[in-house]
Design a protein around this nucleic acid. Structure first.
Lengths: 142, 142
DNA sequence: CCGAATCCAGCTTGATACTG
DNA sequence: CAGTATCAAGCTGGATTCGG
């Protein structure tokens, strides 16, 4: 990240070719907040395999509420990461698919998930050690 | 993720070599929720460059509150991604550093941030298009 | 000066119920 | 099927305060 410029505050816009997530007021920060999100991640990963309908996604992504699914899908659609197509059948059927832009993000997301799924044992061990050494005083965050 | 098994629900534990983030009750899901987090991401990225003290992090990560910083750091420490070392100087000085485990995650995180910082224009364009077509009915999420 | 803990207002989340 | 509406609960962050 072009080190050297450790701009603690602010600037990000303007002539700069790219944003700076470390600046609170940079649009990039908001974007990061949206893609670095559990539901967004799982939705994009799922749609990368195949287009899917609302309830398909809901079934696939165990534990997501309708509200969060609907809300997150709209956000992803607005950001151009997911497309939404409506077919006026009897009960209207809506299909969601990933866009090329969305697909270009999936690799990183997948890497993150792969990390989580494979490194879990080490994390669990660290947690156990932490909870032991800290001697009970630390409440389970999980 | 051993594809093919589209286990909508549950299983993840047991004999399986790795977790399944799509299962709501899998510890991996909680882990994903913690690493797919704005503050965790920015903290890990920052510490990957160099160890840093609390207020150094606070200054670097524009907009983070003391509370969230302290809370997130404790969570990362518990998960073994960050180490905390105290030096009993006059005003005690506490330094945070990334662990090898944490460092092994940074590449994916950095990729995600790079994506956000470089693809922002396309996302902004998509938002503009969406907001126009949807005809005012959609309130700015940002 | 560094860092943690507390109180409080406000936003986000999720369960439930309801509509086209 | 595909959402929207509503409400209660929890989390977030700012300000303040306390301790070393």
């Amino acid at each position: 990240m072009q080190e050297g410029t450790f701009s603690s505050h602010g600037h990000c816009r303007g002539t700069t070719a790219r944003g700076d997530v470390f600046a609170a007021d940079c649009p990039t920060r908001r974007l990061l907040d949206r893609i670095a999100d559990k539901w967004s991640t799982l939705i994009l990963l799922t749609l990368h395999d195949q287009p899917m309908r609302f309830n398909g996604l809901k079934r696939r992504i165990d534990g997501v509420s309708q509200k969060m699914l609907s809300q997150t899908l709209r956000s992803l659609e607005r950001d151009g990461l997911v497309s939404r197509s409506v077919v006026a059948t009897v009960p209207v059927s809506v299909t969601y698919a990933i866009t090329p832009l969305g697909a270009s993000l999936v690799a990183s997301l997948r890497a993150m998930i792969d990390w989580a799924e494979t490194r879990m044992p080490e994390v669990a061990a660290a947690q156990a050690a932490y909870d032991t050494i800290s001697g009970r005083s630390v409440p389970e965050i999980a």
